[in-house]
Amino acid sequence: MIEIGRNIFALIAFGSAVIFGIGGIIGLFRFPDAYSRLQAGALCGTTAVISIFIGSLILAPTWAIAARIILLLFFFLVSSPTGAHIVARFAWNSDIQPWRPADQRRTGSDDRSKE
């Protein structure tokens, strides 16, 4: 009985991981510039990997594995935005202009203003 419940919860977690993963990969190809690709890829990728961690945590065979997965989850919550920030900062410092939709292009003033 417990086994069936574990399988059902793991199936939900892995199913959401598949959906978010597909969304992230489509986002990597659909958007036109590096910042937007980073938004889609980093956000959906992080959520997919965290869903995979939760699913593996439900299915973990021993306590040693479960404790390490919990540790991994908390470290991943710190390290994933740090990696995304490093990439975004590299793009910002190498003078890449952010993309804008066609009807918005002349309204705002300077995005990349150096003070």
């Binding site: 990597l28 590096a34 980093a42 994933s80 990439v87």
Partner: peptide, 18 residues
């Protein structure tokens, strides 16, 4: 550009972890 490649590498590291 280099930034697009770094974005792909960022996602790839998470995939390897999972």
């Amino acid at each position: 550009r280099g930034a697009d490649r770094l974005v792909a590498l960022n996602v790839l590291s998470g995939v390897a972890l999972g």
